[in-house]
């Protein structure tokens, strides 16, 4: 079956498509979440060094990965919107930011609660933690700049500049544990080494990463639909939708 993907770059047709996709991702998120928590708490063994405290990993690592990944996706769509003047791309960037900021906050929060029992401190100004905090400020900066500008298309363009410049922070976060001495442990998973943990721990963590993925997609689609309506509320197709419903 041939699908005309370009059709969906128009907010009107994407709005409907997104509405159909959300339930699928919600169901997938719930399934992965239940499976991931079950593996994380009931299958994965106690860590020989960190005891039960290590179980924070099942949300800390997914949150940290999502915080970085969502930023790159946000900057990508912001850049596309800036370069090609496509409305939907910019709306996507705007829709991703709050979820990215939330995951960044959660990575910092769960990291603090993990750091206290393991390192003896909630916070330390080292490279990994500081660069992740900067990521949080980048998200906040992107959102407040957009909120401060009344014209949405101008807000898109100004936000895109912050988003694109801020991408430089992502490799800094990722490689910070190699480039600088830090309290933070090295990568939990890397391509050229065996994972530094038991296989059930790894499985639990990866299933939780999938759950975060599905959740993020669902919630971002939900938000982008609201943004589409907000921005296109005076267009013919939205009026058409209202007529169909009992206005």
């Amino acid at each position: 079956m041939a699908i005309n993907w370009f059709k969906y770059s128009s907010p009107a047709s994407f709005y409907t498509l997104a509405g159909k996709m959300i339930p699928i991702f919600v169901i997938a998120a719930v399934i992965f979440l239940v499976a991931g928590l079950y593996i994380g708490f009931f299958v994965a063994p106690t860590d020989f060094q960190q005891g039960e405290a290590y179980r924070i990993i099942f949300i800390h690592v997914p949150a940290a990965w999502m915080s970085m990944f969502l930023y790159v996706v946000m900057a990508f769509w912001a850049a596309i919107g800036l370069a090609f003047n496509t409305r939907l791309s910019s709306m996507f960037a705007t829709a991703i930011a709050p979820t990215g900021a939330m995951f960044t906050f959660l990575a910092l929060w769960t990291g603090a609660l993990w750091g206290k029992p393991m390192w003896g401190t909630w916070w330390v100004w080292d490279a990994r933690l500081t660069s992740e905090l900067i990521l949080f400020f980048l998200y906040i900066g992107f959102m407040s700049l957009q909120a401060a500008i009344d014209d949405p298309r101008r807000a898109d363009k100004a936000g895109a500049i912050i988003a694109i410049v801020g991408v430089v922070n992502i490799p800094i976060i990722y490689f910070s544990v190699q480039w600088w001495n830090t309290l933070h442990q090295g990568a939990s998973v890397s391509i050229n080494q065996a994972p530094a943990m038991a296989s059930t721990m790894l499985t639990g963590m990866l299933v939780m990463v999938l759950a975060s993925w599905m959740y993020s997609i669902a919630v971002i689609l939900k938000r982008v639909r609201v943004i589409i309506l907000e921005r296109e509320s005076h267009s013919a197709w939205v009026t058409e939708l209202q007529k169909k419903g009992a206005v």
Binding site: F105, V219, R223, V226, E230, V238, L241, Q242
Partner: peptide
């Protein structure tokens, strides 16, 4: 984590409800 997820979903639903108050209920095509 749980609180953040609940808050995020509620905030988006709220944002949509505000719109619907303004423009009436919006059905999908």
């Amino acid at each position: 984590v749980f609180l953040c997820i609940v808050a995020e979903v509620l905030l988006i639903s709220n944002r949509r409800r505000t719109l619907e108050k303004q423009y009436g209920h919006i059905h999908d095509l």
